[in-house]
């Protein structure tokens, strides 16, 4: 009977896990990434978006069990489509009670959680234990730069990733490539070194920064001022492929 706050349910979400999936976006995130393209996902409170068609409320409360039952209506579709449900955000691990209850209730369906890894170890381990596949973000290996661009240290995140690698639970690592922030060889090499030889890593997905990222800021009455040069993005999978790590660009 745990309540959670979400802001969107997307059928046929094609970029967040395998097969035919429904992606549920949870509202609220502990990080403040300067490149965030979903600014409405940051606050844990419902908020108004000012759109051309008028004002609309973003974010609503749902019951974990009811949401799971709604998803179970499509169980047969998910089975036919080798897919399932994905919790994304925001940060699903920032609403651990809701997330855990939902994952338990929806269990016969293939479950994916997409997380920044920014959560206490106990929460991280519990939730990963309830998933069939984890999509873990890896942004910046350098703690200072990480703090500079996301507002938080990466200590907790790296500890969780370390546990994930050792756990044997299948996962995909996703790197949002931001020009001048984390697309340098040094960072990618460090990421590569962390994952090299980890058998439960399915692949690395590079997500190049896109200039549409700022589209939603005006709807929240905010300005988008990314402190980096949009033109100079460096995208390569070579560093990974040269080390026998499967990597693709999304």
């Amino acid at each position: 009977m745990k309540k959670g706050i979400i802001f969107s349910i997307e059928e046929f979400g094609i970029n967040d896990g395998p097969g035919i999936r429904t992606v549920i976006f949870l509202k609220g995130c502990p990080l403040r990434c300067v490149w965030c393209h979903n600014p409405e996902s940051i606050s844990f409170e419902p908020q108004y978006l000012e759109k051309k068609s008028g004002r609309s409320l973003c974010g609503y409360s749902v019951d974990a069990t009811e949401l799971a039952q709604k998803m179970l209506k499509n169980k047969i579709i998910f089975e036919m489509g080798n897919g399932g449900v994905t919790l994304s955000g925001g940060e699903p691990l920032a609403q651990p009670g809701f997330t855990a209850e939902f994952l338990e209730q929806v269990a016969p369906v293939h479950r994916v959680v997409e997380t920044s890894g920014m959560a206490p170890a106990s929460v991280f381990r519990e939730i990963v234990g309830l998933t069939d596949l984890t999509l873990i973000d890896v942004k910046q290996m350098n703690p200072e730069k990480h703090r500079q661009y996301t507002g938080a240290s990466n200590r907790q995140i790296l500890e969780n990733i370390g546990w994930l690698c050792a756990s044997g639970k299948p996962f995909v690592a996703r790197i949002p490539l931001i020009p001048g922030v984390n697309d340098d060889d040094e960072n990618l090499q460090a990421i590569q070194a962390m994952f090299k030889g980890v058998p439960s890593l399915q692949r690395i997905e590079l997500m190049p920064y896109n200039k549409f990222a700022g589209a939603k800021y005006p709807m929240l009455g905010r300005e988008y001022n990314p402190p980096f040069d949009l033109q100079s993005l460096h995208v390569t999978t070579d560093i990974f492929k040269n080390n026998n790590i499967n990597a693709i660009v999304l």
Binding site: K52, S53, A215
Partner: peptide, 10 residues
């Protein structure tokens, strides 16, 4: 649009 889908007219 990128990482999210939007209603074009909005």
């Amino acid at each position: 649009v990128w990482g999210w889908s939007g209603y074009f007219v909005e």
